Computed example of a mutant assay.
Amino acid sequence: MLQHIFNDRLFVTYICPYTWIISSVFIVIFQGILGIKAPYGRYNESNHGIPGRLAWFIQELPCFIIPCYLLSQYWSSISLIKFLLIIFFLIHYFQRVFIYPMLIRGGKHSSISITLTAFIYCCINTYSIVEEILAYHVFPRNDWLSVHFILGGIIFFTGFVLNLQADSILRNLRKDNNEHGYKIPRGGLFEYVSGANFLAESIEWTGYAICAWTLPALAFSIFVWANIAFGRALHHHKFYLEKFKDEYPKNRKAVIPFIL
Protein backbone atom coordinates (compact mmCIF):
# COMPACT_ATOMS: atom_id res chain seq x y z
CA MET A 1 0.00 0.00 0.00
CA LEU A 2 2.81 2.41 0.85
CA GLN A 3 4.18 1.94 -2.64
CA HIS A 4 1.07 3.68 -4.00
CA ILE A 5 1.44 6.62 -1.59
CA PHE A 6 5.18 7.22 -1.32
CA ASN A 7 8.31 6.30 -3.09
CA ASP A 8 8.69 3.20 -0.92
CA ARG A 9 12.45 3.35 -0.55
CA LEU A 10 12.41 7.07 0.21
CA PHE A 11 9.83 6.48 2.93
CA VAL A 12 11.51 3.43 4.43
CA THR A 13 15.13 4.57 4.30
CA TYR A 14 14.83 8.28 4.99
CA ILE A 15 11.39 9.77 5.77
CA CYS A 16 10.45 7.36 8.52
CA PRO A 17 13.84 7.28 10.33
CA TYR A 18 14.31 11.05 10.28
CA THR A 19 10.74 11.49 11.52
CA TRP A 20 11.56 9.35 14.58
CA ILE A 21 14.84 11.19 15.18
CA ILE A 22 13.15 14.60 15.03
CA SER A 23 10.31 13.30 17.21
CA SER A 24 12.89 12.12 19.74
CA VAL A 25 14.09 15.70 20.21
CA PHE A 26 10.56 16.86 20.99
CA ILE A 27 9.97 13.90 23.31
CA VAL A 28 13.06 14.79 25.34
CA ILE A 29 11.93 18.42 25.52
CA PHE A 30 8.34 17.66 26.53
CA GLN A 31 8.91 14.63 28.75
CA GLY A 32 12.45 15.02 30.01
CA ILE A 33 12.71 18.79 30.37
CA LEU A 34 9.11 20.01 30.77
CA GLY A 35 8.05 16.91 32.72
CA ILE A 36 4.90 16.16 30.70
CA LYS A 37 3.84 12.56 31.31
CA ALA A 38 2.33 10.31 28.66
CA PRO A 39 -1.07 9.26 30.14
CA TYR A 40 -0.71 5.49 30.26
CA GLY A 41 0.22 2.99 32.95
CA ARG A 42 0.54 4.56 36.39
CA TYR A 43 -0.03 8.00 34.88
CA ASN A 44 -3.47 7.14 33.47
CA GLU A 45 -5.35 8.74 36.34
CA SER A 46 -8.82 7.89 35.04
CA ASN A 47 -7.94 4.20 34.53
CA HIS A 48 -10.50 4.08 31.69
CA GLY A 49 -10.07 2.49 28.30
CA ILE A 50 -8.76 -0.89 27.18
CA PRO A 51 -7.58 -3.43 29.80
CA GLY A 52 -3.80 -3.37 30.09
CA ARG A 53 -3.17 -6.90 28.85
CA LEU A 54 -5.37 -6.51 25.79
CA ALA A 55 -4.02 -3.05 24.99
CA TRP A 56 -0.45 -4.29 25.11
CA PHE A 57 -1.26 -7.25 22.86
CA ILE A 58 -3.08 -5.09 20.31
CA GLN A 59 -0.46 -2.37 20.03
CA GLU A 60 2.53 -4.72 19.83
CA LEU A 61 1.02 -7.34 17.52
CA PRO A 62 2.10 -5.63 14.26
CA CYS A 63 5.72 -5.97 15.43
CA PHE A 64 5.38 -9.74 15.07
CA ILE A 65 2.93 -10.07 12.18
CA ILE A 66 4.62 -7.63 9.78
CA PRO A 67 8.12 -9.23 9.95
CA CYS A 68 6.58 -12.68 9.45
CA TYR A 69 4.69 -11.47 6.39
CA LEU A 70 7.67 -9.66 4.85
CA LEU A 71 9.94 -12.60 5.59
CA SER A 72 7.58 -14.83 3.60
CA GLN A 73 7.60 -12.35 0.69
CA TYR A 74 11.40 -12.20 0.46
CA TRP A 75 12.12 -15.76 1.56
CA SER A 76 13.65 -16.91 -1.72
CA SER A 77 16.26 -14.15 -1.82
CA ILE A 78 17.32 -13.44 1.77
CA SER A 79 20.86 -13.92 3.03
CA LEU A 80 21.86 -15.40 6.37
CA ILE A 81 22.47 -12.02 8.03
CA LYS A 82 19.06 -10.73 6.93
CA PHE A 83 17.41 -13.84 8.30
CA LEU A 84 19.26 -13.52 11.62
CA LEU A 85 18.34 -9.86 12.00
CA ILE A 86 14.65 -10.61 11.51
CA ILE A 87 14.86 -13.54 13.93
CA PHE A 88 16.40 -11.26 16.59
CA PHE A 89 13.52 -8.84 16.07
CA LEU A 90 10.96 -11.65 16.30
CA ILE A 91 12.52 -13.10 19.46
CA HIS A 92 11.98 -9.82 21.26
CA TYR A 93 8.44 -9.33 20.00
CA PHE A 94 7.31 -12.92 20.46
CA GLN A 95 7.99 -12.38 24.15
CA ARG A 96 6.41 -8.91 24.12
CA VAL A 97 3.26 -9.93 22.23
CA PHE A 98 2.45 -13.43 23.43
CA ILE A 99 4.14 -13.85 26.82
CA TYR A 100 4.55 -10.48 28.55
CA PRO A 101 0.85 -9.44 28.45
CA MET A 102 -0.22 -12.73 30.05
CA LEU A 103 2.16 -12.12 32.96
CA ILE A 104 1.03 -8.59 33.77
CA ARG A 105 -0.34 -8.24 37.30
CA GLY A 106 -2.68 -5.45 38.29
CA GLY A 107 -1.91 -3.22 35.31
CA LYS A 108 -4.01 -0.14 34.63
CA HIS A 109 -6.21 0.37 31.57
CA SER A 110 -4.84 2.15 28.51
CA SER A 111 -6.83 4.85 26.73
CA ILE A 112 -8.09 4.05 23.24
CA SER A 113 -6.14 6.98 21.77
CA ILE A 114 -2.84 5.88 23.33
CA THR A 115 -3.36 2.27 22.21
CA LEU A 116 -4.26 3.36 18.68
CA THR A 117 -1.29 5.70 18.45
CA ALA A 118 1.07 2.97 19.65
CA PHE A 119 -0.47 0.51 17.16
CA ILE A 120 0.08 2.89 14.23
CA TYR A 121 3.63 3.66 15.35
CA CYS A 122 4.44 -0.05 15.65
CA CYS A 123 3.06 -0.71 12.15
CA ILE A 124 5.09 2.05 10.48
CA ASN A 125 8.29 1.56 12.48
CA THR A 126 8.33 -2.21 12.05
CA TYR A 127 7.69 -1.93 8.32
CA SER A 128 10.53 0.58 7.97
CA ILE A 129 13.06 -1.49 9.91
CA VAL A 130 12.24 -4.84 8.31
CA GLU A 131 11.68 -3.62 4.75
CA GLU A 132 15.01 -1.77 4.84
CA ILE A 133 16.79 -4.96 5.93
CA LEU A 134 15.07 -7.31 3.50
CA ALA A 135 14.60 -5.14 0.42
CA TYR A 136 17.04 -2.25 0.32
CA HIS A 137 20.13 -2.51 2.51
CA VAL A 138 23.14 -4.18 0.90
CA PHE A 139 25.04 -6.29 3.42
CA PRO A 140 28.62 -7.36 2.71
CA ARG A 141 29.14 -11.06 2.21
CA ASN A 142 29.62 -12.89 5.53
CA ASP A 143 28.65 -9.71 7.41
CA TRP A 144 27.26 -11.97 10.14
CA LEU A 145 30.91 -12.62 11.08
CA SER A 146 31.74 -8.91 11.33
CA VAL A 147 32.74 -7.19 14.56
CA HIS A 148 29.69 -4.92 14.53
CA PHE A 149 27.26 -7.83 14.12
CA ILE A 150 28.83 -9.96 16.86
CA LEU A 151 29.24 -7.02 19.26
CA GLY A 152 25.72 -5.79 18.53
CA GLY A 153 24.33 -9.27 19.07
CA ILE A 154 26.02 -9.54 22.46
CA ILE A 155 24.64 -6.14 23.50
CA PHE A 156 21.17 -7.00 22.15
CA PHE A 157 20.84 -10.28 24.05
CA THR A 158 22.39 -8.78 27.19
CA GLY A 159 19.70 -6.10 27.13
CA PHE A 160 17.06 -8.73 26.38
CA VAL A 161 18.00 -10.83 29.42
CA LEU A 162 18.25 -7.77 31.68
CA ASN A 163 14.84 -6.68 30.43
CA LEU A 164 13.32 -10.06 31.31
CA GLN A 165 14.92 -9.88 34.74
CA ALA A 166 13.63 -6.35 35.38
CA ASP A 167 10.12 -7.29 34.27
CA SER A 168 10.18 -10.30 36.57
CA ILE A 169 11.26 -8.17 39.54
CA LEU A 170 8.48 -5.64 38.91
CA ARG A 171 5.88 -8.34 38.36
CA ASN A 172 6.76 -10.14 41.59
CA LEU A 173 6.23 -6.99 43.64
CA ARG A 174 2.53 -7.84 43.36
CA LYS A 175 1.11 -11.15 44.53
CA ASP A 176 -1.87 -11.17 42.16
CA ASN A 177 -4.08 -9.08 39.85
CA ASN A 178 -6.02 -7.66 42.79
CA GLU A 179 -2.99 -5.87 44.22
CA HIS A 180 -2.53 -2.36 42.84
CA GLY A 181 -0.10 -0.63 45.20
CA TYR A 182 3.51 0.26 44.48
CA LYS A 183 6.63 -1.05 46.22
CA ILE A 184 10.33 -0.35 45.90
CA PRO A 185 11.86 -2.71 43.30
CA ARG A 186 15.14 -4.32 44.35
CA GLY A 187 17.69 -6.54 42.64
CA GLY A 188 19.36 -6.54 39.23
CA LEU A 189 19.73 -3.15 37.61
CA PHE A 190 17.19 -1.77 40.09
CA GLU A 191 20.02 -1.55 42.60
CA TYR A 192 21.46 1.21 40.40
CA VAL A 193 18.54 2.85 38.58
CA SER A 194 14.78 3.30 39.03
CA GLY A 195 14.10 2.57 35.36
CA ALA A 196 15.95 -0.74 35.08
CA ASN A 197 13.47 -2.14 32.55
CA PHE A 198 13.74 1.04 30.46
CA LEU A 199 17.54 1.00 30.54
CA ALA A 200 17.60 -2.68 29.59
CA GLU A 201 15.31 -2.18 26.61
CA SER A 202 17.32 0.84 25.47
CA ILE A 203 20.50 -1.27 25.65
CA GLU A 204 18.74 -4.00 23.70
CA TRP A 205 17.78 -1.77 20.77
CA THR A 206 21.18 -0.10 20.77
CA GLY A 207 22.63 -3.56 20.23
CA TYR A 208 20.16 -4.19 17.43
CA ALA A 209 21.10 -0.92 15.72
CA ILE A 210 24.78 -1.92 15.85
CA CYS A 211 23.90 -5.36 14.47
CA ALA A 212 21.76 -4.11 11.60
CA TRP A 213 23.81 -0.98 10.82
CA THR A 214 20.83 0.64 9.09
CA LEU A 215 19.30 4.10 9.56
CA PRO A 216 15.79 2.83 10.51
CA ALA A 217 17.27 0.62 13.25
CA LEU A 218 19.40 3.50 14.53
CA ALA A 219 16.41 5.85 14.52
CA PHE A 220 14.35 3.35 16.51
CA SER A 221 17.13 3.03 19.06
CA ILE A 222 17.29 6.81 19.45
CA PHE A 223 13.50 6.97 19.79
CA VAL A 224 13.54 4.29 22.50
CA TRP A 225 16.20 6.14 24.50
CA ALA A 226 14.26 9.41 24.20
CA ASN A 227 10.83 7.98 24.99
CA ILE A 228 11.43 5.51 27.78
CA ALA A 229 14.94 6.19 29.09
CA PHE A 230 15.05 9.98 29.11
CA GLY A 231 11.29 10.31 29.47
CA ARG A 232 9.53 7.51 31.27
CA ALA A 233 12.42 6.52 33.54
CA LEU A 234 12.87 10.09 34.80
CA HIS A 235 9.17 10.26 35.67
CA HIS A 236 9.31 6.93 37.48
CA HIS A 237 12.33 8.06 39.48
CA LYS A 238 10.52 11.21 40.57
CA PHE A 239 7.43 9.12 41.40
CA TYR A 240 9.44 6.80 43.66
CA LEU A 241 11.21 9.70 45.38
CA GLU A 242 7.92 11.45 46.12
CA LYS A 243 6.13 8.31 47.24
CA PHE A 244 8.79 6.69 49.40
CA LYS A 245 10.86 9.77 50.39
CA ASP A 246 13.67 8.86 52.81
CA GLU A 247 12.91 5.16 52.43
CA TYR A 248 14.01 5.18 48.80
CA PRO A 249 17.70 4.29 48.17
CA LYS A 250 19.60 7.56 48.01
CA ASN A 251 22.32 6.35 45.63
CA ARG A 252 19.87 5.05 43.04
CA LYS A 253 19.75 7.12 39.83
CA ALA A 254 16.93 7.37 37.27
CA VAL A 255 18.34 5.61 34.20
CA ILE A 256 22.15 5.88 33.90
CA PRO A 257 23.99 4.24 36.85
CA PHE A 258 25.96 6.73 38.96
CA ILE A 259 25.20 9.59 36.53
CA LEU A 260 21.52 10.40 35.81
Results as ranks from 00 to 15, higher is better:
residue 125 N to M: 10
residue 163 N to L: 04
residue 140 P to G: 10
residue 143 D to V: 02
residue 79 S to V: 02
residue 159 G to F: 06
residue 82 K to M: 11
residue 90 L to H: 00
residue 95 Q to R: 13
residue 89 F to S: 09
residue 108 K to H: 13
residue 171 R to N: 12
residue 99 I to V: 15
residue 95 Q to W: 08
residue 106 G to T: 08
residue 146 S to N: 11
residue 151 L to W: 08
residue 157 F to N: 03
residue 126 T to G: 07
residue 142 N to Y: 14
residue 131 E to Q: 13
residue 170 L to F: 09
residue 160 F to C: 01
residue 108 K to F: 11
residue 89 F to D: 10
residue 160 F to E: 09
residue 91 I to E: 09
residue 112 I to D: 00
residue 116 L to A: 15
residue 112 I to E: 02
residue 88 F to E: 10
residue 113 S to T: 15
residue 130 V to D: 05
residue 128 S to G: 08
residue 162 L to S: 09
residue 141 R to A: 12
residue 115 T to M: 02
residue 110 S to L: 07
residue 157 F to A: 04
residue 138 V to Y: 13
residue 90 L to G: 03
residue 168 S to H: 15
residue 103 L to Q: 14
residue 85 L to R: 07
residue 108 K to G: 09
residue 81 I to H: 02
residue 119 F to I: 01
residue 122 C to G: 00
residue 154 I to L: 15
residue 89 F to V: 07
residue 170 L to G: 08
residue 123 C to E: 03
residue 136 Y to E: 08
residue 117 T to P: 00
residue 169 I to Y: 06
residue 131 E to C: 02
residue 148 H to N: 15
residue 150 I to P: 05
residue 136 Y to L: 05
residue 160 F to D: 01
residue 156 F to N: 06
residue 138 V to R: 12
residue 93 Y to E: 05
residue 109 H to P: 00
residue 101 P to V: 07
residue 126 T to W: 01
residue 163 N to K: 06
residue 112 I to G: 00
residue 84 L to G: 01
residue 167 D to C: 07
residue 122 C to N: 15
residue 156 F to V: 07
residue 125 N to D: 07
residue 78 I to S: 03
residue 102 M to G: 00
residue 96 R to L: 00
residue 113 S to P: 00
residue 152 G to R: 04
residue 90 L to N: 14
residue 109 H to E: 11
residue 82 K to H: 08
residue 145 L to E: 13
residue 163 N to F: 06
residue 87 I to A: 13
residue 98 F to I: 07
residue 166 A to Q: 06
residue 97 V to S: 02
residue 130 V to Y: 05
residue 164 L to K: 01
residue 150 I to H: 07
residue 90 L to S: 11
residue 86 I to Y: 04
residue 87 I to N: 00
residue 78 I to R: 01
residue 112 I to V: 15
residue 133 I to W: 05
residue 157 F to W: 13
residue 119 F to P: 00
residue 152 G to S: 07
residue 143 D to Y: 10
residue 108 K to A: 11
residue 115 T to R: 04
residue 111 S to K: 15
residue 162 L to K: 08
residue 101 P to K: 11
residue 170 L to S: 08
residue 116 L to K: 01
residue 93 Y to W: 09
residue 166 A to M: 09
residue 115 T to C: 11
residue 123 C to Y: 04
residue 154 I to R: 07
residue 106 G to Q: 07
residue 150 I to N: 12
residue 85 L to S: 05
residue 112 I to A: 09
residue 164 L to I: 14
residue 127 Y to H: 10
residue 116 L to C: 12
residue 127 Y to K: 05
residue 170 L to V: 10
residue 138 V to Q: 15
residue 102 M to V: 01
residue 154 I to Q: 06
residue 172 N to R: 12
residue 97 V to F: 04
residue 94 F to V: 01
